[in-house]
Write a protein that binds this DNA or RNA. Structure first.
Lengths: 245, 245
DNA sequence: CGTAGGCTTGAACAGGATCAAAGAGGGTGG
DNA sequence: CCACCCTCTTTGATCCTGTTCAAGCCTACG
């Protein structure tokens, strides 16, 4: 379990082409795609692009909520802390994922870069203006929120009722599915986060995560090349373990 | 237990006044309040009211999602199951709470009455029509969904990182706050659900819940009259325990 | 009364945590 | 290019919180 220390504020701006959103590489993955080619210019007018290094903080729990963001590359973790430093990672984000929309004054979790990342940033007040103007954007956000709520219930089932083995298996299955959805390899699964992040996501310790991965390896369900890439010879077996079968 | 079938009505209809929504007693708590007096008649035209007994199911995980609901009285639990029967209760609902909005074909959790309940039911297709017509209704739903997402992150922090004592304390604090928000007594906290439901909400066993409550009692943080009503002589102490202080 | 279901309490167990130490890279500077 | 160091990961030994198994208790209800 990690104790947090104050980090850096977020990053430097990256290139700003004339039509940033129209030609965006992850538009098809993101909420921006709710707007058509003729409308997306409005997003481009309020967007600011920037990049951050691994471990840099995008925003902290309690910060004034003035912007929301789209991840355009890299991976991000979201977490909450208890007073004594116990940490729960509530989610990981990848390219195309949206974060930071809150109708409250303050963010209620911290967002931190796992790898180097690039983001689009939107001022919340201006985005809300666009929401009023384009109902389909709002509808898209609502849909996204409902999907998130569904996913989060699976996560609670996992946290509250699954064994360590089932948790680790669920985690790998989740990573694999999300990679596949982005057109990336789902089988040698990319695992950009370290053991500590995995542990804090699963509600375990790094030692238990490590031992469990070793066990899956011993049982031939997974095979490990480098630490950040897991081969899954038997995806069905892994999925069954994840579901408690 | 009464088996529900998709598409069929559950429970029996309750009275249907001429203007059901305009005079609704929980309107101020619910999303319906997004519509003004002049507009709310449209809701009344598509609403169907009914009641269910304790332990009756409103809908099951996997059922076709054809309706959404507003709880008008009573308490409801939402849960997911693993194949072997392990259960995680992902939330409790009380009067004014909304459930069942899904943009997927199927519900992804089960909703079951804890106490006797009354509901308003809305056909999803017709409600979506109203959403298009009244953006403020959609905005209200989005806001509600964001609040739900924020609450659910606290819940994950609890499930993954809190001790049994902290979990039980958090649970009581949650019940107390939600009761207060509805203008009900927050101090003798009403606890409508049984130990088994509490356990499955907190990711514990009934024995651990029972022992933990006994401990809180022994420590003078709570006092118990009847099993369903908890007195909290030291609310601050309980809140501190809940936050891990 | 008597019984059944839910709650509490006790005793033993176990899964995962904690404490400790040894490997494995990877980057840096000599 | 290599030696050193720092961090992350793995593995081992022990501990402890919460589980499991089991028995008794209370209360509502027939």
């Amino acid at each position: 379990m990690i104790r947090m220390q104050p980090g850096l504020t977020c990053g430097k701006p990256s290139k700003a082409p004339t039509e940033p959103c129209a030609s965006c590489g992850v538009r098809h993955l993101s909420i921006c795609n709710a707007l058509g080619d003729d409308e997306i210019g409005h997003l481009g007018q309020i967007v600011y692009e920037f990049e951050v290094l691994p471990r840099e903080t995008i925003f902290r729990e309690g910060d004034a909520a003035e912007h929301c963001f789209n991840v355009t590359s890299g991976s991000v973790k979201l977490y909450k802390l208890l007073a004594d430093g116990r940490r729960q990672i509530t989610g990981f984000l990848f390219e195309g994922d949206f974060l930071g929309l809150a109708f409250k004054k303050q963010h209620n979790f911290t967002a931190e870069a796992v790898t180097a990342c690039t983001f689009c940033r939107f001022p919340l007040d201006k985005l809300e203006g666009l929401l009023g103007r384009y109902p389909k954007l709002e509808k898209r956000l609502l849909r996204e929120a409902m999907e998130e709520l569904a996913a989060v219930q699976d996560q609670m089932l996992m946290l509250g009722r699954k064994t360590a083995l089932e948790k680790v298996a669920s985690f790998l299955v989740m990573l694999s599915r999300r990679a596949a959805k982005r057109g990336r390899p789902g089988n040698p699964v990319a695992v950009p986060m370290n053991r500590s992040d995995i542990a804090d996501y699963l509600g375990l310790t790094i030692e238990t995560v490590s031992r469990t991965i070793t066990q899956l390896k011993r049982d031939g369900v997974i095979a490990i090349n480098d630490l950040n890439h897991v081969n899954v010879p038997k995806p069905e077996a892994l999925a069954e373990i994840a579901d408690g079968l």
